[in-house]
Every structure is written in C-alpha cells, then in structure tokens.
C-alpha cells in the first residue's frame, strides 16, 4: 500500500504538469496553425531579426524616421494611416517643435465655420494623418476597384506581421512560366493568391534619405516596415519593459510563496 500511495501522490503533481504542458502545447498548435491557414497559398515569410523582437526589444528610432519618410513620400499616395496622430511622432525622437512644423505641412479639412462651410486649415500636432481619399469608394474608384487598406494596424492585421510586410514589399518577381497574371495584377509569391493589385511600390533610390542612408529597395522596405510596426504597436517598448519587471516580481513572489507554503504545511502530520 505504502509505495503505491507514494507514487500516486507524485503522480498527481505530475498530472498537473503534464496536463498543463499538453494544454499549452495545444495553444501553441492552435496558434501556429491559424497564421498558416490565414496566409494560405502565400509563401511563408522568412523571419527577420528586428530590433523590436525579444524580451527587451526596442524600436530603432533612426529606422523609424526613415520609415516615416518612405511612408510620406511613397505609401501615403494610396494608403491612409488614420489612427496615428502627428503628436505620436515624438516617439520617433522628434522634438515638439519638429512635430509642429511637420504637422503644419499638412492641410486638414475642418468645419463647419460660422458660414456653414468646411474649410482647409494647417495641421496641428493633435491631428491625425489625413487620408489620401475622401472615402473607401473614392479609393476603390482610383485604384481599379481594389481598396488600399489603412496601414495603422497592418502588421497586427496580417499573419506573419512585420516579417510578412517586409517579404511582400520585396517579394515582387517575374511570374513563373505557366502562371497567367491578369492585367492590373502583379505576381508576388508571399501574397495569399500570388497576385495582388498593388504595383511594386518601391524602386531603387526612390527616396532621398535625410540621413544619407543609401535607399535600396531592401533598406526602404525594412525602414517602412519598422515604422508601420511602431504605428501598429506604439506601446511595445513600454509593454516589454513593464513585462520584464512584472515577470521578475512574480518569479520572486512564486519562490517566496512556495517556501511559505512549505513552511505552513510542515505543521501538517
């Protein structure tokens, strides 16, 4: 009887561990399956070594500033960024004055005024990036029926996140023999159906970077991807730093509570 019960006692604890591990593994399987099915048909994007990966990852501010430039000079012709306000750009390392003068480069529709008319005024830091089209239908009409998505959340709204975005921007190739690409669509193996309505947006040397970095397609794509990753998750740095402290605290608390529990239970015969 004795050895059996002893084993059974250890078994109970092992059961928790195994069951928990199995369930966590299930979560992992469910989690990894979903991006795979969502991006069905598209090639899996290669993993990139972003500065914001990892437990204490941070954004590379120089890259974000270059990425902002790429967005403003290239992407913003078709894509809105309507959840990002100019004031948020201080996180990229700009001073409040720089943000103010940057926002002043934009015209914002406001109103109605006392006469009941809408009018254009200079942008303020509290404004958000204005959209290139008045509404979705205007955007569709100007783009052969395809709607350029808003980019504020794009890395969160696509399976693969920043890796996918970078792979897509640099993934335009000649279609393989036998693959018919209809007019107005472009071949890209990372896109779910391999053909998308966005023309290759980046060309060598398209942007003249303020900091003198050579603007290869790879460089611009990487920069704008990092900028959009920031746009989607501006809280990332604060989140990871707080997380580190919280985990450290909880780890120590767990150890203390383990020994406290053992101490309390040592009284039980």
């Amino acid at each position: 009887m004795k050895p059996q019960i002893r084993m059974a006692g250890g078994y109970g604890f092992a059961l928790v561990v195994v069951a928990t591990l199995v369930v966590v593994a299930t979560l992992a399987v469910a989690g990894t399956i979903r991006p795979a099915t969502a991006a069905e048909g598209g090639k899996a994007p290669p993993k990139q070594d972003w500065s914001f990966n990892g437990a204490l990852g941070t954004y590379d501010k120089a890259a974000l500033q270059r990425g902002l430039q790429v967005y403003r000079e290239v992407c913003s012709a078709c894509h809105s960024l309507k959840r990002v306000a100019f004031r948020n750009l201080e996180a990229l390392g700009y001073s409040p004055e720089q943000v103010k003068s940057l926002s002043a480069e934009y015209e914002i529709t406001d109103g109605p005024n006392d006469e009941g008319d809408f009018f254009e005024r200079v942008g303020l830091p509290s404004d958000r990036f204005p959209a290139p089209f008045a509404n979705d239908n205007a955007a569709r009409a100007a783009n052969n029926g395809a709607l350029p998505p808003d980019l504020s959340l794009i890395t969160k709204a696509r399976a693969g996140g920043a890796d996918y975005l970078h792979a897509l921007l640099t993934g335009y190739r000649e279609a393989p023999a036998g693959h018919e690409v209809p007019d107005g669509l472009y071949y890209n193996e990372y896109y779910a159906s391999q053909q998308l309505a966005m023309a290759p947006p980046l060309t060598e040397g398209q942007v003249e970077y303020a900091d003198g970095t050579p603007s290869s397609v790879e460089q611009m794509s990487s920069d704008v991807t990092q900028f959009l990753a920031w746009a989607a998750e501006p809280e990332l740095e604060a989140r990871k730093q707080m997380g580190f402290k919280v985990l450290l605290f909880l780890f120590v608390l767990s150890v203390v509570m383990f020994f406290a529990t053992r101490r309390v239970w040592s009284r039980v015969e």
Binding site: P35, A38, P149, L153, K156, A157
Partner: peptide, 8 residues
C-alpha cells in the same frame, strides 16, 4: 491567442 483578422 487572437486572430490577425480581428484587427481589420
């Protein structure tokens, strides 16, 4: 544990 589509 979420789904990317829910950010659309």
């Amino acid at each position: 544990l979420g789904h990317p589509d829910n950010y659309i």
